[in-house]
Design a protein around this nucleic acid. Structure first.
Length: 780
DNA sequence: GTTCCAACATTTTTT
DNA sequence: ATGTTGGAAC
């Protein structure tokens, strides 16, 4: 444990009242605009800093910390500064230390989870744990739950462990211990939810383990049940700062409220318009209610945006304005003019990827209208990760360098988790979950039967699995070739454990463990294409050990910090999800896939209704505001999703973009313009698509019966894979375009009239001929 | 105990 | 389309 000195420092801390409030020079204040300055100087009492996108939030936050120190109000170890991610914590630390000219120890700056671990290690016994508890990740959590579910005789097929894990996470996010789960939730998980939850918590306790949710929940329990402990922390931590307050869940909110209720020096920073984590328990309500929760709170709005041009800001504001129940901000910028937000429609997803690829290359070269833009300055932000594939495929084809941000993280890879399990066993041989994970990896001839015997032996004698296995071996309870191998495994663990105690070179030890266990050999003998990559990853893992003094230290670190530093070099376009883009900024941003159902996501709307839609809209807001100078929104009429063709209407968010700040692009050729978006004013653009009853659809269905196909699904918008070429007129201009759908009433060869109507008023009529030139695209 | 195939799911992601 | 997983066949 590293934290004990902090606690001692607290005990010795001079009471606040005795500290002089000396005025020292404050050059950092000169750098701030009036709102930022107000937020920095309001040091006492509750403060809500409402910081819109790109308004210098981190600057204000870090300056505030420096100001707290500089005015001698408090000392570095008395400031509690919480963030959500390790990355954010790291950035804050860096910036504070830069302002201070050298780092002063700020032990209480970190994520909710890392700070909770620190507190929990100190008081573990108050919730029935030992101070050296292990932290389980999602995978361990699910395996444990699966055991309980099977033991409870529940059909794991119909009621998967993953689902139960989700339910438990949700409950923990709301700070509900098994006893506090409200009666209304009794029906969860086939009426067995609370029962399993309780068993799960018991099991964790007996394993001396906690999951991520527990870190907060246990601390909360301690604070609630032991007022003396709470009072101590309130005294130790007289100043509290919270970043990204709009993303706090109920448990975090309670955690903060308890700590802050004595001195009320809490400064929460956030933006209700950027709350995009509702699906993992974040409560926008926390930020909306702040003034009620903390009476007399100062609310300071940071509204000057330093990131984006006028048009981009106006477009984002226009979209977000549709949401109800906002605290409300009016962002403005001194940067007038610039490019309007560009909007373009495509025939299908591949076309969209092709166009964006070409556009990126053009921007890289520079055009008449703009100077060259580097690849590092460009990003493609998608709603769902499966959208990335089309871009990767295309960019590989044209040789455009790209990097995918997010995705499966290093420490979540199979081989890394296996290796970590070996390390965990070496450090604490009693770690049953680690034991289970690797007893038969690589294959040791220990299948279900053998493992069950080990489990039984261990449970009967109430000992860890390793000891159970040892006992079983002693009494000859395991037969065949498995016995020899299990003996080797057990002896190996003993040997490695002894080595960790002898302060051996831990890097060498790690290599030894992986070699002696046969794990490295397993991948070396594997001829599948991914094996070499996995071996590479293992090498990287061992390399990462260099930064730590021993295996324990490394494991502790990894349990909480599951992110990977990809120190990739070279100019590359970034591809990531909108969620991953939060907090980032790029001169040029592409926002593809703005189609109803994809974005806003159908599922979000089905599951959370209007709330879900509003969160999607905030996501759109986040997306647009990532852009500094160029923002390109696009959509496609047809898209292949999981091997199925789907058609969709342009996203309703497109209609919400204020027309005055949007430039509708029409690329050369027949493609583009999708539904007439390129040609018609925003308020006139619509398409409808009931084709089920059309002869064309009937005919396609007939054709389909001869070959297997998926049933046409209940959907309003259905792809017609016959291509329609349309001509239509707006004002004095005539456009032609290709359509994926419309109100189709004919078959191939027919002349068709399509009425584009919005809210019943028909405004544009396009006549077109249904052609069969895309017949090979017909999915059946 | 291992291998193979059919069934299944597939928004977003941190700790 | 694709990758994972559970159960049956070997």
């Amino acid at each position: 444990m590293t934290g004990s000195d902090d606690f001692d420092a607290f005990e010795a801390a001079v009471p606040l009242s005795q500290r002089a409030m000396a005025a020292r020079p404050t050059p950092y204040l000169e750098d701030l605009n009036p709102a930022q300055r107000a937020a920095v100087e309001a040091l006492d009492g509750p403060v809500l800093m409402l910081a819109g996108a790109g308004t210098g939030k981190t600057k204000a936050l870090t300056s505030r910390i420096v100001h707290l120190l500089n005015t001698q109000r408090t000392r570095p170890n008395e400031i509690l500064a919480v963030t959500f991610t390790n990355k954010a914590a790291r950035e804050m630390k860096d910036r504070v230390s830069r302002l201070l000219g050298g780092m002063e120890g700020m032990p209480w700056m970190g994520t909710f989870h890392s700070i909770s671990v620190k507190i929990l290690r100190r008081h573990a016994e108050l919730v029935g744990l030992k101070s050296n508890f292990t932290i389980l990740d999602t995978d361990d959590q699910i395996r444990l739950l699966k055991q309980l579910i099977v033991a409870a005789n529940i059909d794991e097929k119909r009621w998967p462990a993953r689902m139960m894990a989700g339910i438990i996470d949700g409950w923990k996010n709301r700070a509900w211990t098994p006893r506090r789960v409200p009666a209304a939730e009794a029906g969860a998980f086939n009426h067995r939810g609370t029962e399993i939850y309780e068993q799960y918590q018991d099991r964790l306790k007996s394993l001396n383990a906690v999951d991520f949710g527990d870190l907060l929940l246990h601390v909360l329990t301690i604070f609630q049940d032991h007022p003396d402990v709470l009072a101590q922390y309130q005294r130790w931590l007289p100043y509290i700062l919270v970043d990204e307050y709009q993303d706090t869940n109920s448990a975090q909110y309670l955690w903060l409220r308890l700590l802050a209720q004595a001195h009320k020096n809490i400064c929460c920073v956030g933006d209700d318009d950027q709350s995009i984590y509702g699906w993992r328990g974040a409560e926008v309500g926390n930020i909306l209610r702040f003034e009620k929760d903390f009476p007399g709170a100062k609310v300071i709005r940071l509204e000057q945006n330093y990131r984006s041009t006028e048009h981009i800001l106006a477009a984002a504001s226009g979209v977000i304005a549709t949401n109800a129940g906002r605290l409300g901000k009016t962002l403005w910028t001194a940067a007038k003019g610039g490019e309007k937000v560009r909007l373009i429609g495509h025939w299908d997803g591949e076309e969209e990827a092709r166009w964006i690829g070409e556009e990126i290359e053009a921007m890289q070269r520079g055009t008449r209208r703009m100077d060259p833009v580097g690849l590092d300055s460009m990003a493609i932000l998608v709603r769902a990760s499966h959208q990335m594939r089309a871009f990767e495929d295309r960019f590989l084809t044209i040789g455009l360098p790209y990097r995918v941000i997010g995705g499966p993280r290093f420490y979540e890879r199979l081989e890394i988790r296996d290796a970590m399990a070996y390390f965990r066993l070496a450090v604490s041989p009693d770690d049953d979950l680690a034991f289970e994970r690797v007893v038969n990896t690589p294959k040791r001839g220990l299948g279900d039967k053998a493992q069950q015997s080990i489990q039984r032996a261990a449970r009967e004698a109430d000992m860890p699995l390793l000891e159970g296995a040892r006992a079983l071996l002693a009494q000859g309870g395991i037969g065949g070739k498995g016995a020899g191998q299990l003996r080797q495994f057990v002896e190996g663990i003993d040997r490695w454990h002894a080595a960790t105690l002898r302060e051996h070179n831990h890097i060498e030890l790690a290599e030894t463990i992986l070699d002696e266990s046969g794990y490295t050999a397993m991948w070396q003998n594997d001829k599948t294409p991914e094996a070499p990559g996995r071996l590479e990853n293992l090498k990287e893992l061992v390399k990462a050990l260099e930064q730590f003094e021993n295996l324990q230290g490394f494991l502790e670190h990894v349990a909480l910090i599951m992110d990977n530093e990809q120190g990739e070099v070279g100019e590359k376009v970034s591809i990531m999800t909108l969620h991953a883009a939060k907090g980032l900024e790029f001169p040029a941003v592409f926002l593809p896939g703005w189609e109803d159902g994809l974005f806003p996501s159908q599922r979000a709307m089905d599951e959370s209704g209007l709330k879900g839609l509003e969160e999607e809209r905030r996501l759109a807001y986040v997306g647009i505001t990532r852009a500094e100078r160029i923002c390109t929104v696009s959509f496609a009429a047809n898209r292949r999703v999981y091997g199925q063709w789907q058609s969709a209407l342009p996203s309703r968010f497109i209609d919400e973009l204020p027309a005055a700040h949007v430039e509708v692009l029409t690329p050369p050729g027949l493609y583009g313009g999708g539904f007439g978006a390129a040609a018609t004013p925003m308020d006139q653009r619509v398409a409808s698509a009931d084709v089920y009853n059309s002869p064309g659809w009937k005919r396609m269905q007939d054709r389909a019966t001869s070959r297997p196909m998926s049933q046409p699904r209940e959907s309003k918008n259905v792809v017609i894979d016959l291509q329609a070429v349309a001509k239509f007129t707006t004002g004095d201009r005539v456009f032609s375009t290709k359509f994926g759908y419309g109100t189709v009433q004919g078959v191939e060869g027919d002349k068709l009239d399509v009425a584009f109507d919005k809210a019943g008023s028909k405004k544009i009529v396009a006549s077109f001929v249904v052609a069969a030139d895309r017949a090979d695209d017909v999915p059946f």
